[in-house]
Design a protein around this nucleic acid. Structure first.
Length: 613
RNA sequence: GCCUCAGUAGCUCAGUCGGAUAGAGCAACCGCCUUCUAAGCGGUAGGUCACAGGUUCGAAUCCUGUCUGGGGUACCA
């Protein structure tokens, strides 16, 4: 990488110059402070170092410092010139060719070892199996899966995990909703009389999809069908007169019936969610059920006991509390409600306790949450500390929420009656555009997802811009080695280059052989475009590292847009396939490198890289 | 009230550790297909980086305060 090479040279020059810089001690802090940047103005060179910050250490004027360092510059391939407090560097064409050579030898561009040895557990989406995934889940899915891919590209060993929230009040609510909605379906099927209208109810989950679940359950489960029918008939017969207030009776639903509905609903919704995630190319190695993994194995109580033994719990108002205020939370939190059941927090504490104790020995527990769970962080972090774990190994990536724009109007995501689900959006917009769009903005920004815009004018979507660049590369690489019929005569033209010759050239590639790439361009402006293109390709590895370090997948989309733009630009000023096979060959090397970076970047985003469009 | 995210071109958003003249896409306007994919390229126009102080050689970036908008502030999850 060019950047590394420059930094090495800079470090050497700095050490040599140190005596004339008031005996500056060239330590890590000084080297870390030296930032290599791309100048905005191309006249300032390819890279620049701002040495102004050394003024404090050396008590010298910045231009003087720059000049002193420049005087000790030894690498002629990185020619240095001084403008004010800047050390401007212009790279020789050889350096560019070396970078391209290195890139072409890379089977997976950007792959690096910056996170080698890291063992990371990433948990995301983790929806309740009480309904279809909504647009917000789509953001976490795209964000999480992309981040996982990026972390792996940096050498980390990553496990992606989905926590199935299949215990607790919400499951009971969805089951009750199914039962309630079932009476309408039964009415349609004329097994129940119109008496049903006497039932007055607030439905916890009013979404239309509940009726769909009901129909499927009733169709597939004749036994359950009979049980539900019997339940409703009994209830209506027991109350021959007047309206039935559902709230008074929901507690008397037979436990077995409710459990069967709950289980079947859970399985149904989970499989729907999994199918969609699969469509989105979002993969989890691990699916953890709150009910099966935590409740049924009875691991909640032990972690609760451990908290108590450490003295971080107390009883008050018939409930058990966690002293989360001792860890900076604004108030203490209930662990066990006065009715004896746990709050959501309690199994979640056990879950995170378990994450820390797994044999994999994760040194980073990374959760991706929606911003609506923000206030939950201090108590979770507190619990982790209270259990004796290192809270620094626990990190929450918060994503701001998604606004769905339909007909130009902002719709809050959620379980509305006429809700647009993630599946609807995917059907309209497609996986590629959805994933690209979802990660192309910083997670810190609330995201407006305009469905009409994304669906109607797909060509405006940046993902196609990048994919088009990739397809264009592929097309050129195809055409280069194929015989094409002459437009006028219909006779077959020979290919621009022989496929074997091309393979041979690439296998024996050296920077010197690429010199023709620059030499064949007459216009300085075209050379500048080429140089810029090579610099962006070369810095792709840094982009991947930064994206991993800052958990910022949108760096990747940004970089791909950049590569695509520079390539399109180059394509318009410089023909790749020429009558001269030698020139064609070196230009094809460039195209191959671009194609390889674009393909790799799209792979990291989980977006397809079409060879034709 | 408190916590938190945001406020940058008409719109949607980048801007990494504080650096040179503020960056894209879309929308607008003017050009470019006889040639490898025009889902493309070149150009023009568009800015009080919400506001006010502060820190310093230097602030869209850091600090304080104010305003506006999103989210949170449960014995829901």
């Amino acid at each position: 990488m060019i950047r590394t090479r420059i930094l090495d040279q800079l470090s050497i020059a700095l050490r040599h110059a140190a005596p004339q810089l008031n005996a500056l001690s060239v330590d890590d802090a000084v080297l870390a402070g030296l930032r290599l940047e791309r100048p905005r103005n191309p006249e300032h060179g390819d890279y620049a170092v701002n040495v102004s910050f050394l003024a404090r250490h050396t008590k010298m004027a910045p231009p003087k410092i720059a000049e002193t360092i420049a005087a000790h510059w030894t690498d002629p391939s990185l020619s240095a010139s001084v403008v004010g407090g800047y050390l401007n560097l212009r790279l020789s064409e050889t350096v560019f060719c070396e970078a391209l050579t290195a890139l072409l030898k890379e089977s997976e561009p950007g792959k690096n070892a910056s996170l080698l040895g890291e063992v990371i557990l990433v948990e995301y989406v983790s929806a309740n199996p009480t309904g279809p995934l909504h647009i917000g889940h789509g953001r976490w899915a795209a964000l999480g899966d992309t981040l996982v891919r990026i972390l792996r590209h940096c050498g980390a060993q990553v496990t992606a995990e989905f926590y199935i929230n299949d215990a607790g009040v919400q499951m009971r609510n969805i089951a009750l909703s199914v039962l309630l909605r079932a009476r309408e379906v039964l009415l349609e099927r004329e097994k129940l009389s119109a008496d049903i209208q006497r039932v007055e109810a607030e439905v916890p989950y009013p979404g239309d999809y509940v009726s769909d679940i009901v129909r499927e359950l009733l169709d597939d489960q004749p036994e359950l069908n009979a049980q539900i029918l019997a339940f409703w008939q009994a209830l209506l017969q027991a109350n021959p007169e007047g309206p039935i207030l559902w709230a008074m009776h929901s507690d008397s639903v037979p436990t077995d019936l409710l459990k069967s509905i709950m289980t079947l609903t859970r399985d149904r919704m989970l499989s729907v969610q999994r199918a969609l995630l699969d469509t989105m190319r979002v993969t989890f190695e691990s699916w953890i059920s709150e009910k099966a993994y935590l409740y049924d194995r009875d691991v909640i109580t032990p972690s609760l006991q451990r908290l108590s033994e450490q003295g971080f719990t107390y009883e008050a108002d018939d409930a058990l509390w966690f002293k989360s205020t001792e860890f900076g939370d604004e108030k203490d939190r209930v662990l066990r409600k006065s009715d004896g059941s746990f709050t959501y927090l309690t199994p979640d504490i056990a879950y995170h306790h378990d994450k820390f104790n797994r044999p994999e020995g994760y040194n980073l527990i990374l959760d991706i949450w929606g911003a609506d769970h923000h206030g939950y962080i201090p108590r979770m972090r507190g619990a982790i500390q209270a259990l004796g774990h290192n809270a620094d190994q626990f990190e929450v990536l918060l994503g701001q929420l998604v606004n769905l724009i339909v007909d130009g109007e902002r719709t809050r995501m959620g379980k509305r009656r006429k809700m647009l689900t993630l599946q609807d959006v995917i059907d309209e917009v497609g996986v590629d555009a959805t994933r690209f769009w979802m990660v192309s903005k910083s997670a810190d920004s609330a995201l407006d997802f305009d469905v009409d815009l994304a669906a109607s004018s797909t060509s405006e979507n940046p993902v196609f811009y990048v994919q088009y660049a990739h397809a264009r590369c592929c097309s050129i690489l195809r055409n280069a080695v194929e015989s094409a019929p002459n437009v006028d005569t219909g006779e077959l033209n020979p290919p621009f280059v022989q496929a074997e010759a091309l393979t041979e050239f690439e296998a024996q590639l050296t920077p010197e052989k690429l010199a023709l790439l620059f030499d064949s361009l007459a216009e300085p402006r075209d050379r500048a475009v080429l140089g810029n293109l090579l610099l962006i390709l070369d810095s792709f590895e840094d982009t991947v590292k930064d994206a991993a370090r800052l958990r910022a997948p949108h760096f990747i989309t940004q970089a791909l847009m950049d590569v695509a733009a520079q390539f399109h630009s180059f394509y318009n000023v410089c023909r790749i396939l020429t009558p001269d096979p030698a020139v064609t060959t070196v230009r094809l090397m460039l195209v191959r490198a671009i194609q390889s970076v674009l393909a790799q970047g799209l792979e990291l985003l989980g977006v397809s890289a079409p060879e034709k469009m």
